[in-house]
């Protein structure tokens, strides 16, 4: 489809490359990091990359900010950027903030209960609880809890 990976193509889509890099960085942090706060930070980067994608979509070459002059004297020659993606992304930013806040609040509660925010320590603690449940309830059914 793309007319080969010419220099113009690569440079012309710089913001899209950055979107992919940011997205994968965030995604990698979410998957690879054991610290819950770092996971949330990674998730945030992941979501932020999408903002970049949307803003890039809204850009019209040579377009200016989509604000009409106060006297409504609109020059038909003026090219405006597409404002819709900007508005959409405002909503997505709000969603992202809410998700981050909720994630951090959950981490506070996890810290209170487990006394740690490291995933492997939490998993170990949960394994112990499960093993205890197995001993208490699992025998009767000959299965695993």
């Amino acid at each position: 489809m793309a007319s080969g990976f010419t220099w113009d193509f690569i440079v012309g889509h710089l913001n899209y490359w950055m979107f992919i890099v940011l997205m994968m960085t965030g995604f990698y942090i979410v998957v690879a990091r054991g610290n819950l706060v770092k996971k949330i930070a990674g998730l945030n980067i992941f979501q932020t990359s999408v903002f970049m994608l949307y803003i890039s979509i809204g850009k019209v070459t040579g377009g200016t900010a989509p604000i009409f002059p106060a006297d409504m004297n609109i020059d038909p020659e003026t090219v405006y950027s597409n404002p819709v993606p900007h508005v959409l992304i405002l909503t997505a930013i709000v969603v992202g903030v809410a998700t981050t806040a909720l994630g951090l609040a959950l981490i506070v509660r996890i810290r209170e209960e487990y006394d740690t925010i490291e995933e492997d320590v939490i998993l170990e603690a949960e394994r112990k609880i499960a093993a205890k449940e197995n001993r208490a309830y699992g025998d009767a059914m000959g299965g695993r809890a």
């Binding site: 997205m23 995604f27 979410v30 819950l36 996971k39 998730l43 992941f46 979501q47 999408v50 994608l53 949307y54 979509i57 819709v84 993606p85 997505a92 969603v95 998700t99 909720l102 994630g103 959950l106 981490i107 509660r109 996890i110 209960e113 487990y114 939490i122 949960e126 609880i129």
Partner: peptide
């Protein structure tokens, strides 16, 4: 207390899912 970690795991996966969805909509747009 495992409800907290269950909710956290769901939050991570649910958000990844929703973000994928919104990327898809962005591409459609």
């Amino acid at each position: 207390k495992r409800a907290l970690t269950a909710a956290f795991d769901y939050l991570i996966m649910g958000t990844i899912g929703a973000t994928f969805f919104v990327i898809g909509i962005g591409l459609l747009y």
